[in-house]
């Protein structure tokens, strides 16, 4: 399979779906002439024209609301919010319209809209370095996906565009350059299927989006110490596929959640609660969470580095959990 970047994989999904279905169009800030601030949509404006690649004003509520309305009216919009920080401007449209119109009107209306946006950071300070996936994942009526690999990004985006449901498709600014194998042709990945990215028997690391990478590299280093970590990439946050997690914890007896989000009320809290209920009898250690420091994100490079979870934290936490192994297991 050819190696492609995460950025190119997403663009390929957009392009293929636009060619496949006339109703699919892109709208957002700088998606057209500029080619996308992260260059995801580069070339699409020239190829498809301004009917199907629509630049918008800086107007997030109108971008998402208009996309939802266009979806209700029979189109397949892919709206881009430049970063997830700006989704707050549009949050009423996401929460009260996209996620509600189907239910609230008794199933008459559908809103097959995709909202693409990017989490991420990079000395952007407090308002531009956040990650709100847990907020969206708490909403019945919405699909939330957060792919980590180019392969998953392309397959999940195609599923999102073809879905009759509203989808928050959350990318990551620091993944766009990551490469991986991506088939040229058409394929889709269903929502709600977690993926075991590495197998192991001593510890289960549950993660998603960019945190997959420090989790995998930590697992490599732990293997050198004789600790075999299983790494599960959730890929979808709603629906959340916990079955592979329960199966893994039954085997490893330890669960570590790694998220690039605040821990309080974050995705990890939900995952830990579910493990605590479903896998209680198999746990040999408390479920642990690693996330962003409980502070607004700072500008200074050293402080930012302290705030974002890294490979070493995963290694340290994993060692502590395994070394603290309780000998007499409850089975």
């Amino acid at each position: 399979m050819p190696a492609k970047s995460y950025r190119d994989a997403i663009r390929e999904a957009l392009r293929e779906e636009m060619k496949r279905d006339e109703r699919v169009f892109i709208m957002g800030e700088e998606v057209g002439v500029w080619g996308g601030t992260y260059a995801v949509t580069r070339g699409l404006y020239d190829e498809f024209g301004d009917k199907r690649v629509k630049d918008t004003p800086i107007s997030e509520a109108a971008i998402v609301g208009t996309a939802v309305g266009a979806a209700m009216g029979g189109l397949r919009p892919v709206a881009e919010l430049m970063t997830i920080n700006f989704s707050l401007i549009a949050i009423d449209q996401i929460v009260n319209n996209a996620a509600k119109v189907h239910y609230m009107f008794g199933g008459q209306i559908t809103a097959p809209v995709v909202v693409r946006t990017a989490a991420g950071w990079g000395q952007l300070a407090a308002t531009h370095s956040q990650s709100f996936e847990a907020w969206f994942a708490s909403l019945p009526g919405l699909i939330v996906v957060m792919p980590a690999t180019p392969y998953d990004a392309k397959g999940l985006l195609k599923t999102a565009i073809r879905s009759d449901n509203p989808v928050m498709f959350i990318e990551h600014s620091r993944l766009y350059g990551v490469t991986g194998e991506v088939p040229d042709g058409d394929y889709t990945i269903p929502f709600g299927r977690s993926d075991v990215k590495r197998t192991g028997k001593d510890l289960t690391i549950i993660t998603y989006s960019r945190m997959l990478y420090p989790s995998l590299s930590a697992a490599d280093k732990l293997a050198g110490d004789g600790i075999q970590a299983e790494v599960i990439d959730l890929r979808s946050l709603r629906p959340l596929d916990m079955e592979p997690v329960y199966a893994s914890v039954q085997k490893t007896h330890r669960a570590l959640i790694v998220e690039e989000d605040w821990v309080s009320g974050g995705m990890g809290a939900e995952i830990a609660a579910r493990i605590g209920k479903e896998s209680f009898d198999f746990l040999d250690a408390p479920v642990e969470r690693i996330g962003v420091a409980d502070a607004p994100l700072p500008y200074a490079k050293n402080l930012e580095a302290l705030a974002i979870p890294n490979e070493q934290q995963v290694i340290d936490q994993a060692r502590q959990m395994v070394d603290g192994r309780v000998q007499g297991r409850r089975e």
Binding site: T66, G69, M72, G73
Partner: peptide, 28 residues
């Protein structure tokens, strides 16, 4: 609401449906 009559519904967040209307018009 009654979609068959192109009546897309009443919305209860003040002003929240105005962008939906822009989208419906765009779809047309």
């Amino acid at each position: 609401a009654d979609v068959e009559r192109h009546f897309w519904g009443g919305y209860a967040i003040v002003g929240g449906h105005i962008p939906l209307a822009v989208g419906l018009a765009l779809a047309s």
